[in-house]
Nucleic acid binder design. Structure first.
Lengths: 136, 136
DNA sequence: CGTGTGTATTATGTGATATAATACACATGT
DNA sequence: ACATGTGTATTATATCACATAATACACACG
């Protein structure tokens, strides 16, 4: 288990977990994507400003901006100069995005397991074990 | 889909896929781990020498050495000066290692899916879809 | 006009990664 | 003894991604 000084910080309705095992902007990006995918940030919602987010996360504004620009490239948000960044992806689009991410996660997971020599039976078994232990 | 010039090179019985999306030594390390986990390199087997591997993969010997040292830290191999690097982990130990990696993969996968708001039903469904499409 | 937006620019610093060129320590076979 | 093949260590260099800092700019709104 890697701990590496995990920082948990809240900004508005969101909670971010940051550590040093990955680029900061990627962690912010991924957690923003997940928040939108979950529907936690609905259509039209204004997400925290770059400077506000930067201050809350104790991070440089440039770093937050980097993440936000990737969000826009994803087609999830839209930027309006002088106003802020808003979620503009419609629910159907968001769900499509969410599914795409999920399928990629599935593929990476299955490929990884098969590289270790596990078949479907083993995968199902290990998942059941996790199901028995873990939450949700 | 990321292509990024994937190089596939063979060395002895093994085949390596290298690209530039990750550190080279990590890719070598992970694929060596998988080969051992699969039982493709049995107990006592001498793995290719640092220089041989470096030449085959078109990579600096230091890079290969880095990967090999991590393998030894994993307790999978043992180094004998003047002789080479050998697989010294017994089958039971290898299997324990394989399971540990697999469980970590499962945990990361499940956590990621749950972060996207998917429950067990969704996970099972997406896995079934992949099962229908993909190989093995 | 003042304030709050996102963005751009320039500079600096750090760390991981990879390469190159050598040299060393050790085992083995001849 | 020697040559050869092992892993390893050292030193140097180079590159790149990442993050920060300090400013400045363009725009919207009240």
């Amino acid at each position: 288990m890697r701990d590496d000084a995990v920082h948990e910080r809240k900004v508005g309705p969101l909670t971010f977990r940051l550590d040093l095992s990955q680029p900061l902007y990627e962690q912010i990006l991924e957690q923003m994507r997940a928040a939108i995918a979950r529907g936690e940030l609905p259509l039209g919602e204004k997400i925290p400003s770059v400077r506000e987010m930067a201050q809350a996360l104790r991070v440089n504004p440039n770093t937050v901006s980097h993440a936000y620009q990737e969000l826009e490239r994803d087609g999830l948000t839209e930027t309006r100069r002088g106003q802020g960044t808003f979620v503009t992806a419609e629910p159907a689009r968001v769900d499509q995005f969410r599914t795409a991410i999920a399928e990629q996660a599935v593929n990476e997971f299955v490929d990884r397991m098969q590289a270790l020599g596990f078949g479907w039976n083993d995968i199902d078994r290990l998942l059941d074990e996790r199901k028995a232990k873990g939450g949700a």
